[in-house]
Nucleic acid binder design. Structure first.
Lengths: 199, 199
DNA sequence: AAGGAGATCTTGTCAGTGACAACTTGTCGG
DNA sequence: CCGACAAGTTGTCACTGACAAGATCTCCTT
């Protein structure tokens, strides 16, 4: 693992603090210098581990994709259907909003980074696995449309929730803790439409 | 309208140039100073119209919500069903990626701005209208889940497309110009599942 | 036809930031 | 014990956003 010289584990500390700051102020606002000050190290110390500000965000995104892949895999291996995996997707987003925001902000990331590409591939492989399951069940006569619909509906819920649009739109009356339950019902609607139709 | 004193219409010019810069570098990168230099005015000139950098982004978001509301209204009044309105939503996002990116980045905006709130309300009213149409058609036994599913699926497609995730994920084999057609098929899948099922 | 009021823009300045270079300190293996 | 290298510090530079004060232009009133 990472050595523990002067600070202990500065790399880990920087990532953890970045998560906090991004959750409060957004990915575009946090500064390496104030972050270093928070940790009690010099303003150039983080640079030694990440190279640049973009390097910090890229490392954070890579960590996020790894965590998301694990969450999705766990939901699938528990025998979950599409709704379970979808709830896991949204659950990850609300549990790790800073990671999620960075993961899908391409202008903030270094897409040539090998660690990021590897972590992304973990998540995308998991998504592709979900497609094949749908095809095998004969639920997807139009696989391309089915996978786009599946990914988009959970990704859309996650981004709308994190952007605050659901609260601002007055479309939701539920409390925040009901988001996952509402996600389940919406996801179920996609491939089991009978559940949402009048009898 | 806006007066045309020295520059002509600096407010309009700043917004137009901001759209270009954000499309190239993202909302977090563009600077008021280089933007002013591009337009041949002093570094403090834009500040007089917008107050701050956040003011520029807020004005851009308000403009975006107005444009989106018009696009959705137009699609609906043309007798379009949910798929048509959904295609219009995604079509707006790919036609105005800079606006769209700013509109749903809450940390960049001043949510106390009256113009922004008014423009948001235009869009949200259009969305609520879509809900009532679904209910009236008896397609939504679970209205809350139905509207979340509807909004999320088109919003998810838009954000995934703009973030480049669709290309990177190797889930799509279609070219970029097929995105709207694929959107139509995915949207149709939600409330007319028979279209996507094996015979 | 002044002339004043106010909007528009400029100049000057300040603190904060990211990147970079050179240097110091600490750790570990031979 | 010492050399190689990782970890962190200090110093610096160009750039940025915000602010203040002054200059310029337009229009409306008298």
């Amino acid at each position: 693992m990472t050595p523990t010289y002067h600070h202990g584990d500065l790399r880990r500390a920087v990532l953890d603090r970045a998560v906090e700051v991004i959750a409060e102020e957004g990915p575009g606002q946090f500064s390496l210098r104030s972050l270093a000050a928070d940790l009690g190290v010099s303003h150039a110390a983080p640079r030694h581990h990440f190279g640049s500000r973009q390097g910090v965000l890229t490392a954070l995104a890579a960590e996020g994709f790894t965590l998301l892949a694990v969450a999705l895999q766990s939901a699938r291996e528990s025998g979950g259907d599409f709704a379970d995996v979808g709830v896991a997707y949204v659950g990850f987003a609300v549990a790790h909003p800073s990671h999620f925001a960075v993961m899908f902000s391409p202008t903030l990331l270094d897409h040539g980074d090998a660690g990021l590409a590897a972590a992304q591939e973990l998540t995308f492989a998991e998504l592709r696995g979900g497609v094949r399951a749908l095809e095998a069940q004969g639920r997807a006569a139009d696989p391309a449309a089915a996978v786009l619909a599946a990914w988009s509906i959970v990704h859309g819920i996650a981004t709308l929730a994190l952007s605050g649009s659901l609260d601002a739109s007055a479309l939701r009356t539920d409390a925040a803790e009901d988001l996952l339950e509402l996600t389940r019902r919406s996801a179920t609607l996609l491939f089991r439409p009978d559940a949402g139709r009048p009898p």
